[in-house]
Design a protein around this nucleic acid. Structure first.
Lengths: 264, 264
DNA sequence: TCGGTCCCTTGACCAAAATCAAGGCGGGCG
DNA sequence: CGCCCGCCTTGATTTTGGTCAAGGGACCGA
C-alpha cells in the first residue's frame, strides 16, 4: 500500500466506509501531480472526476467574461472537490488550478456513481462533504457581506493558527499574500494594509511569518461580527483549555445562541 | 388529494420519485402557515425537519453576535430548505423566517432519512437540490466580491423578469426593497440609489412597479461581470428567441466559455 | 378623518476600499 | 556577481458604499 493510499484511508471519507467499497474506489483512482499554475479543470467542463487533495494547494474559482476572478476556496491535503458536480446535472461550476505545486487523487465519476448506488454509505459521505461545503460558502457570504477587510484577514489568520496551542503563537503563511487577498475578496493592497492595521491587536508580520501575541485579542476583534459557533469555525479551538479558544464566544458574547428576533 | 399535494407532486423533487416513496413522504408531512415575521426555526436548532415553500416568501439568514444579519436566500413556492442539515451532523446553519405570509410543507427528518435509505432516488433528489444550492451560493459569493451595487440590483431585476417574454417588460417587486437590499448585501439607501442609477440603462421604478425598457441593455450592464452561463443564471432566458435573452452572453461576449488562463 | 407608523427616498457627510503609481526586497538565472 | 522579474508595500487620490438625519407618502387603526 503506497503512502498516499494510507493517507486517503485515514480521511473521514474513507475511514467510515467498508473495505468492500473503499478498496475498489482507491483502485479505480489515480494520483496526479500538478505544477503551480496548472489547471486541473475549467468551469463548465463535463464533470467526469472527483478529486481529493494529497498535498499542496488547489484554488477553486470562477472567472467572469471581463477577466476578474472570484476565489471560492483554497484547498489543502485531505480536502475534496468536484463531488457535487458528479451527482448534479451540469458541468463543474468553477475552475480548479494548482495554487502551489499539488498532488491530487482523482476518482472517476462513473466509479463513484456506481458504488454510491450499491452502498448507501458512500452517498452519505458525499452528502456530508457537500453539506460542509454549503456551510463554508454560507460563512464566506456572511463574511463578505458583514465584515471589514481587517476582520476577514484576522479570521483567516486564526484559521491558519487553529492547530496552535497556547495563548499566542506564530506560523508561516502557506501561500502568497495576493492569493490570500483574492480568497478574501479584496485587493492585494488592501490585504497588505489590513495586516498592518492588525498590529494594534497584537499581530506582527515579517514576510510570510506571522506572530499573534494573543489569540483571544484577535478573536475579540474578528469574531463578534461572525455568526459561526466554535464547531463550524475552522479557526475555532474549543477543544483546548483556558485562554486558547478561538471563536468560542459563548463566554465573551453573552447574547450568543440566544438569538433575539422581534416576533411579528 | 388537496391542492398543495397536487402542487408538491408536480415539483421535480416528487415527480421523479416512485409513488411508493412519494406518497408516504407526503403523508408524513404537515402543512403550516406562518405570518410575516414569524420564525420557522433558528440557527443551531436541532435539524428535525425539511421544508418546502408552498406560498409566500421565506428568508434564510445568519445573525452575528453584534446584531447584523446576512441574508443567504429568499425562497418562494417550490423551493426547498433545511434538507442539508437533515443529512449533515450539526443543527441548521441558518435561521428561517417568513418574509411575507407563507405556507410551508414540513417533512420530518426521520421519515426522510428512512426513505432515503430504502430508495436511492430520494437521496439523489436531495443531492440534486443541494448541488443547486451550492451553485447559488457560489454565484452569490462571486457577485458580492466582484459586482457593484447597481449591477447586483440589475441582476436581481433580471431574475424577477425571467418569466417575461419580449425585448422589455414590467413587473412588481414581490417583497420589500429593504429586504431585497439585505439579500444583495447592501443597505436600503444604497439599494434605492442603485435603482435610480439604473435609469440610465432603461430601468424605471414607481413604488414597487419596475419597468425595464430593454433586457438586452440591462444584461450588457450586469452580466459581463458575472460568470454564470444561461443555464445557471436564474435571470437567463435562453429558451426564448431574438432579443429576449438574459445572460446569454455567448452572443455578446466573444470570450465566453473560452476561459483563458495563463498556464504557468 | 386624523394621527401614527413603517418604508422609502434624498441629501450631506464620512469611512473603507479600489485605483494609480512608485519603489523596495528577494530569489532565480544568465 | 549582477540583473531582472515577481511580489509586496506604501503613498496619494478617487470611488464606492455606509452613516446620519430629515422628510414624504401609503396604509392602518382609532
Amino acid at each position: 500500500m503506497e503512502k498516499s493510499e494510507t493517507f486517503l484511508r485515514g480521511l473521514p471519507f474513507f475511514s467510515e466506509l467498508d473495505d468492500a467499497v473503499a478498496t475498489p474506489m482507491l483502485k479505480a483512482g489515480l494520483e496526479r501531480s500538478h505544477a503551480r499554475g496548472e489547471n486541473i479543470f475549467l468551469q463548465n467542463d463535463a464533470a467526469s472526476r472527483m478529486f481529493i487533495v494529497l498535498s499542496g494547494w488547489v484554488k477553486l474559482f470562477r472567472q467572469t467574461p471581463d477577466g476578474d476572478e472570484a476565489v471560492l476556496a483554497l484547498l489543502s491535503a485531505g480536502d475534496m472537490f468536484g463531488e457535487a458536480a458528479i451527482f448534479g446535472a451540469a458541468g463543474y461550476p468553477f475552475s480548479a488550478t494548482a495554487a502551489e505545486d499539488a498532488k491530487v487523487f482523482e476518482i472517476p465519476g462513473d466509479t463513484l456513481r456506481t458504488l454510491a448506488k450499491q452502498n448507501h454509505d458512500v452517498m452519505a459521505r458525499v452528502m456530508d462533504s457537500m453539506s460542509r461545503e454549503l456551510r463554508n460558502l454560507q460563512m464566506q457570504n456572511e463574511h463578505l457581506a458583514l465584515m471589514s477587510a481587517p476582520q476577514r484577514v484576522g479570521c483567516l489568520l486564526l484559521q491558519f493558527s487553529a492547530g496552535l496551542t497556547g495563548a499566542g503563537g506564530g506560523f508561516t503563511l502557506p501561500y502568497d499574500k495576493s492569493l490570500a487577498a483574492a480568497r478574501l475578496g479584496m485587493k492585494p493592497e488592501t490585504f497588505s494594509r489590513a495586516l498592518s492595521q492588525l498590529k494594534s491587536v497584537g499581530v506582527s508580520v515579517d514576510g510570510a511569518d506571522v506572530k499573534i501575541a494573543s489569540f483571544a485579542n484577535l478573536v475579540d476583534y474578528c469574531c463578534a461580527h461572525c455568526s459561526a459557533l466554535p464547531g463550524e469555525c475552522p479557526g475555532s479551538r474549543s477543544e483546548h483549555g483556558e485562554g486558547t479558544k478561538h471563536c468560542d464566544r459563548t463566554a465573551t458574547c453573552p447574547g450568543r445562541r440566544v438569538i433575539k428576533i422581534t416576533e411579528k
